[in-house]
Design a protein around this nucleic acid. Structure first.
Lengths: 224, 224, 224, 224
DNA sequence: TATGAATGAGATTTCATTCAT
DNA sequence: AATGAATGAAATCTCATTCAT
């Protein structure tokens, strides 16, 4: 009965919710929209989700959990702040590029949660952003980064990278690796990093995202 | 009866809508919420707004109009692409910092518009972004900018600058001018602009924003 | 908007609720039943009642308030416990006979209230029953009553008198005064009151009930 | 599949229904409530009950059957109307005291039955009340009772005695026998019976109730 | 200018029930 | 014997909107 259930129908419910919440927003998506998309009656929906809000919370928690796990895996054992931050950027960008719906829901719908539910989600998000903040601080202390305002720069970078979810298309000119590499370069420039070195290990980051999220759903041939 | 009406009550309706649409989203805001916030009955609301959607469209059109006017005023007569782009960034950032509610509504609620209404709004937004695109192209042609991917960089910069509306507080450590100057610097770095020169004319840009939007409402002493 | 509002439609809503809650119970009465009975759309119902539960609570509070006021008026200034208790019985019986619907709702639907709402209703009911308990105690102390078990006898009498609401019909053989007088006599017998005296002032009690509740609605010619 | 089935689970269903129908009413009790209380899935419930209404009807029929059987057993062979009525009162009171849930369901939920189902239940109830009516009439004819209004007195006594189910607790001050004896005395007083004699055979009545209903469930140590 | 009254349509959620397994 | 999956119908309540005053 919980949102984490995974029968064939439960999976359809989750996918329908991710798609519609991303496209129309939580409040813009009705139960009947979900039911139609999931090919179930609206009453049957309630076997798989608790309430609509619990469904949203489940999606957000899972997505943030994946993001956090991915980021930690990607930087595990990496000491150089430039490589660490580069990997954070790359994982973030790739995740937002291959999972634009989940990540947009996380970015846009926090306000739709009730205060109690929101608390847990915000804690996860804060834990994730803390990884960025710590890494930037380390880079500053190590003399690698020279941002004017570390906190402002962190926020600016996060917004910039998250924005990818809103426009990136795998059918566009850029491959995922090119995109992520470009953003890593932008980040280094923003941090005033003169010698950004060879750039983060793109392949490893890509593998981490795939490990955490599973293979992306087959890319639909139209739309986006 | 039109959305452009401006009596004392009509103004309250507009402000209520901006505040609530920004805070809870268009679909998350009910007519009664608006009525309560505007201190009118919900029936009275309909003297000032047409439908709820027309109210939203009016807010977006006005805000985008201001943004467009401000940007054009700021760069009028400026030839140097670096100074032009710097001013675009500064106006954008200041506008998003002093009018976070209107600008967030513009950024988040386009999808809530019906297709017909959306067309006009999207045209305005495209016209605005065209200013950025043209300026970046000029800079590239002039050898001032060296972005890896001009289009990607433009999108990245816009997302980054718009994000300011989500977190900037006038009670924080940064003044508007510091903030805007910092973002202009980030933009130059992102564009690979080696010699960014003295930076854009912050005072002039600030004045333009004020001219276009009027003085910001007195900053409330608490909250955000 | 509150349940105490009294426009022509609001009055209809209240009457519909009293009738249907009495006949079918709170949970057995749907919003649409209420709307049909009140000759309004179900949406319009919500102009007059808050929620269905608030409507119920309003009915109960008003009825208990009337009962309490009536009882206090009837015994005001009366010293003799026999006359006092007789009047309590008579007022109770007449009230249950002329307002069988309200009183049955009070007697049967307390459990349908949420805990918070229930508290206030139960307090009123306890205040009312306290009048009976005090009067019986006084009579015992004065040597007028000789009940085996005062508390049990009080409960037994209350149940007995409240039962009137379930079966009394003004078209039956007994007039209100006969009925009430009979119950007063039963009560005296139950309390082991050898000399019950002339019996309580029936006319005064009848007048009190009328004063408190207003004239009973014209007795419908059929049904009950 | 029928309501009379009695496996271990079927018994749990019946008990759950009695408990919940008494506590929350028929319409206030959902199938899922029943399932939870009976520790079965809601689908499994349907192996033991027919429909929810048949479950209710079964409970009422059984309870009324027990009541009727008990009353007949108790008065079998007793000629004196005072002893007969005393026993009717005592059996009724004891039954309502030891089976408060079943008896409350019978008293409160008749209206929840469909007309067809209701007919049979009402017939049983009428047969039961006829025992009281006949006995009172006999007593009047024999000059033992002097009620003002026999029919009214009968109703008043029944309401009074049934009320026991709403408040009696085996953990209170009164034993079952004391309680029942007290009510028998109240009844004699109400009927104007000057010489009520030694009182009804309490032990025999208690035994009859136990025979008919089986031993009451072990009294839980808390609650009620 | 302003609003109380009113509503059809629709919101989310629960209802009692069935059925394949 | 037991249940997870499923659903049409209905529950309560809110929606945006209109209109007479």
């Amino acid at each position: 009965m919980a949102v984490t259930d995974r029968g064939p129908s439960g999976e359809r419910v989750r996918k329908a919710a991710v798609k519609l919440f991303a496209a129309k927003g939580f409040h813009g998506t009705g139960i009947r929209d979900l039911a139609t998309e999931a090919e179930l009656s609206s009453a049957s929906l309630y076997h798989y989700m608790g309430t609509k809000e619990q469904l949203l919370a489940g999606i957000m928690t899972e997505c943030l959990g994946h993001l956090l796990t991915g980021a930690r895996l990607a930087v595990a054992g990496v000491a150089d702040p430039r490589e660490r931050l580069g990997r954070l950027v790359v994982v973030h960008v790739i995740a937002h590029a291959v999972r634009p719906e989940e990540t947009q829901v996380v970015d846009n719908e926090v306000r739709a949660l009730s205060p109690e539910t929101r608390r847990g989600v915000v804690e996860l998000r804060d834990a994730y952003e803390l990884l960025w903040a710590e890494t930037i601080d380390e880079g500053v202390r190590a003399g690698a980064f020279h941002p004017g305002e570390p906190a402002v720069t962190r926020l600016a970078l996060l917004e910039m990278c998250s924005g990818v979810a809103r426009w990136y298309s795998p059918r566009g000119a850029l491959s995922l690796e090119q995109l992520a590499g470009h953003y890593a370069e932008l980040a280094m420039r923003a941090l005033g990093c003169a010698d950004s070195g060879p750039g983060p290990d793109l392949a490893r980051c890509r593998a981490v995202v795939t490990r955490v999220w599973g293979a992306p759903d087959e890319v639909p041939s139209t739309g986006h």
